[in-house]
Design a protein around this nucleic acid. Structure first.
Length: 856
RNA sequence: GGGCGAGUGGUGAAAUGGUAUACACGCUGGACUUAAAAUCCAGUGGCUGAAUAAGCCAUGUGGGUUCGAUUCCCUCCUCGCCCACCA
């Protein structure tokens, strides 16, 4: 007899993979009378380590969905590609001198082989790679469009600079404030960088979450990340010691009600006031600064700069700062002069980089005031400000606040804001934690930013910045000249001054200005690795188009994505960025309006697969499970089913090689029993019974169908096991294996339905058995079974009899039993008689189909 | 400090107001075998008990709502993830 092991040994799985590939079994049609369904998983980064066991968890889940949808009659698009720009290939190139394109190509081959060996039903004709110039042509095109619409601009932004490697580091390369490669010190250096104005879309990115079906925690995380808060922007006049007004400071506050309690101000070390040559900066040509302790201040700024992010947060208990002597701010409410400090507990990246400090009602300001002996003025009654700041907002009334005394906090916020607006001292304002997106990298292995700098055009004013309308030297590379291809370089390290390695390729950098024809220089920064993944799901619908990022008709057919599954770690970056970019493309009409303003209808997340000990898998811990070995040892189907069975899909879960065995045993049994039935059918040795007597199968159909939709894959597999093994090892639709020696009967309808339900989980095995049963067409051309609700409901059930809510007995009764009948039946039970003897029944609770409860 | 989530057998876990521990691993015993592996069969939360009699106790802790709570509400404890001097 042929066993499952024989099937695997004879390369049965790869035989089916070849059949699917040859017949293009899973190709999506560009046009179809069928309704479309777009399943999407995050395309992998083709790392040198090969596929991780985490990838198949997401891939299998949506593969199951894709296969089910096809059987339900949808035109399914389930594509795959590679997000191939990235640091590991580049670092490998720095180490070995091997071009990242070569490494990438090799890795993609490995990934492709591995993915195919798992039998995912991807449409392999639509594979895309972000490093392909035909692809990144359109990534560059999107950048040009953003620039054209005033969404891209250059700004001075600090980058992480490793002092010993002399290169700029990506945030992910800075580990606990040190350089990841050499362990050396990292400091901040300012550099001009391309920025994208994602903040323009902040409100829409929050509001439109109401129109999509994302897991709640995903929505919540995005909302928190965007961090919208409402408050007021207030101007504080800054004066010198001889009362001359030199400038003013803008602050953002969510608590304008505490304005009368503002007893000092704090600005961040990066604040522009400190660079203002008009009065603050002694080194910029002026002999005398208005700040009398200029040197002390500059020392402090230098120190703050050299502090790593870690130090800045680690030391957050002890606040430091320096007063700007010679300058004072005027509290617009009290007209009192208050001191100004520079301190690094104020962040330059939030609000205006300056705060009005209200020590009585903000703990951080309170701490600072204690340390520097600053006055603490209570303006909201109810706390004990000698002990700590009183931050409560719900109760408490204003004091020491002039005309606003006795107002409750909430009313005071509105009243004081109104007063500020009337006086011309401030306005209502909204602030976001979300920052504009730094889109430049001084790296080789990324999409070149398609811009050219022309000094001449800036002088003549021939080119204007679309955002500011001012004359600019930045000229867009014309669309017809795209893509701007990455040139070959000899060295892949960033240069000593932090520029990209592209900057030393002079014959590439020096070019002609597309506007005036004069000499100009190319932008040498490249895009971050998010750039290609922003819009890749659009390219899948039309991967070979060279006229547009995708044809309108095809976009209209497939977009939006119906179900997108990916890692929780991408919730705030990739997911938010790609929603932003999609909205932009939608706004400019690159995506038809009929697609809607959100790219993903539904977003779910899978949990991490951990090592056997429950720790994150990593090479250094030596607990990495290699998927190839699992496939080799147990087969792809076992691997797939195990990953679905191991636990709740959205939870992190440790790998357990022992657990794989259980799944393998189950599939072994399925193979053995069904192929025996198939053989005996051919020999006509069994009674073919299509009575559909089995009620269990209808319950299983219902359960498995629902569980796939709700991602309870673990209980779906368990339902399949129960269906096959039967309750008490006596399935009602087939004999046990030892009873199959002679003549026996099988409910073939139940068997076929069982195979259809198992097919998305274990496609190779089921195709084989389906063929053995005499079917000529793939099981994935068959229709997904429907549960008969009446049959799914049992004719009889076990009525639970409770006394005071405690289980005491059960008895088999008809499903349509009434309360009166149930009571009679229950009272006949010997056990129940014992409990009810001599007791008064106060109440009877009857739940149809479930139980009867006597309250005594 | 903020946000989100979790705590159930030896283990992964199931049950979302109604028999707590489905399914699977592991373990124990049995069948088959010269033997082992594999496979098959049976058992398997704890306690009392000879018992497959009967009963009690058990879903992190303490309380509440309910005829009935793993499930809903409150207190506390522990763990995980994300964010974090966000004005």
């Amino acid at each position: 007899m042929s066993t499952y092991k024989n099937f695997l040994d004879k390369k049965g799985e790869s035989r089916w993979q070849k059949v699917w590939e040859k017949t293009k079994a899973f190709a999506a049609a560009d046009k179809s009378a069928k309704p479309k369904y777009y399943c999407l998983i995050e395309f992998p980064y083709p790392s040198g380590e090969g596929l991780h066991v985490g990838h198949p968890r997401s891939n299998t889940a949506l593969d199951i969905l894709a296969r089910k949808r096809r059987m339900e009659g949808y035109n399914v698009l389930y594509p795959i590609g590679f997000d191939a720009f990235g640091l590991p290939s580049e670092n490998y190139a720095i180490k070995t001198g091997i071009h990242p394109a070569i490494t990438t190509e090799k890795n993609i081959k490995t990934f492709t082989t591995q993915l195919k060996a798992l039998g995912f039903s991807f449409d392999w004709d639509r594979v895309i790679t972000t490093t392909d110039p035909k692809y990144y042509k359109w990534t560059q095109w999107i950048f040009l469009k953003m620039y054209e619409h005033g969404l891209a601009y250059k700004a001075k932004i600090p980058i992480n600079w490793c002092l010993s490697c002399k290169i700029g580091l990506a945030n992910e390369e800075v580990v606990s404030g040190k350089c990841e490669r050499c362990g050396g010190e990292v400091e901040k250096r300012e550099k001009e960088q391309w920025m994208l104005k994602i903040t323009n879309y902040a409100d829409r990115l929050i509001e439109d979450l109401e129109t999509v079906d994302y897991l709640d925690r995903i929505k919540q995380q995005q909302i928190n990340w965007i961090g919208r808060s409402e408050g007021a922007e207030i101007d504080f006049v800054v004066v010198t010691s001889n009362k001359r007004q030199v400038t003013s400071l803008k602050v953002f506050t969510t608590r304008p009600d505490t304005l009368f309690g503002a007893t000092f101000m704090v600005i961040s070390p990066e604040h522009e006031l400190l660079r203002n040559p008009a009065f603050a900066n002694a080194s910029a040509g002026r002999q005398k600064s208005e700040i009398r302790n200029q040197e002390e201040v500059e020392d402090y700024i230098r120190q703050a700069k050299s502090k790593s992010d870690l130090e800045r947060t680690e030391l957050n208990k002890e606040k430091t700062g320096v007063e700007l002597k010679g300058l004072k701010a005027v509290n617009p409410a009290t007209q009192k002069e208050i001191p100004i400090f520079v301190a690094d507990y104020v962040l330059t990246s939030y609000g205006t980089g300056a705060i009005m400090a209200v020590p009585a009602h903000d703990q951080r300001d309170w701490d600072f005031a204690q340390k520097y002996g600053l006055p603490v003025v209570e303006v909201i009654a109810g706390g004990n400000i000698k002990e700590k700041a009183y931050e409560e907002i719900a109760e408490g009334k204003l004091v020491n606040s002039g005309q606003f005394n006795d107002l409750p906090v909430k009313a005071a916020i509105a009243e004081i804001t109104l007063w500020l607006v009337k006086q011309g001292l401030g306005k209502k304002a909204v602030n976001y934690k979300l920052r504009d997106w730094v889109f430049s990298r001084q790296r080789y292995w990324g999409e070149p930013i398609p811009m050219v700098y022309c000094e001449n055009c800036k002088k003549t004013g021939a080119v204007k910045d679309p955002l500011t309308g001012e004359a600019s030297g930045w000229v867009r590379v014309p669309e017809k000249n795209l893509p701007v291809k990455l040139p070959d370089v000899k060295k892949y390290e960033p240069t000593d001054n932090g520029e990209s390695p592209l900057s030393v390729i002079t014959d590439w950098v020096n070019t002609k200005c597309p506007v005036c024809g004069g000499s100009a220089r190319r932008e040498t920064d490249t895009m971050p690795n998010w750039a290609g993944s922003n819009w890749y799901f659009l390219r899948y619908v039309d991967p070979k188009n060279d006229k547009a990022l995708a044809a309108e008709k095809k976009l209209a057919h497939f977009i939006p994505v119906d179900w997108y599954n990916g890692g929780m770690e991408h919730t705030t970056l990739h997911l938010l960025y790609s929603r932003f970019v999609y909205k932009f493309l939608y706004d400019i009409g690159a995506v038809p309006k009929s697609c809607g303003s959100e790219p993903y209808k539904k977003r779910t997340s899978h949990g991490l697969i951990l090592g056997e000990g429950g720790e994150k898998m990593s090479k250094s811990k030596g607990n990495v499970v290699n998927p190839d070995e699992v496939v080799k040892k147990f087969g792809a189907d076992t691997f797939r089913v195990y990953e679905m069975f191991m636990g709740p899909f959205d939870q992190a879960i440790p790998w357990d090689t022992k657990g794989v065995v259980g799944v393998r045993r189950f599939l072994d049994r399925v193979y053995m029993v069904v192929s025996k039935i198939a053989d005996d059918l051919k020999k006509s040795e069994i009674g073919n019974q299509r009575s559909e007597k089995s009620r269990l199968i209808h319950r299983t159909i219902k359960k498995v169908s629902e569980d796939i939709e709700t991602q309870n894959y673990n209980t779906a597999v368990s339902a399949l096991m129960i269906q096959f093994n039967g309750i008490d090892s006596r399935p009602d639709w087939r004999p046990r294996l030892e009873e199959m020696k002679g003549e026996y009967q099988v409910d073939l309808a139940a068997l076929e339905n069982f195979l259809k339900l198992l097919a998305p989980f274990a496609p190779h095995l089921v195709e084989e058995l389906w063929e053995k049963l005499g079917n000529k067409k793939s099981i994935f051309k068959a229709a997904w079974p429907k549960a008969d609700e009446n049959l799914a409901k049992a004719e009889e059930f076990e009525l639970i009899i409770q006394i005071n809510g405690k289980f005491r007995d059960k008895v088999k009764v008809r499903s349509d039993i009434t309360e009166q009948q149930a009571e009679i039946v229950a009272r006949q039970s010997e056990k129940i008689k014992k409990y009810l003897d001599g007791q008064t029944v106060k109440n009877i609770v009857f739940v149809p189909g479930k139980l009867i409860n006597f309250v005594i």
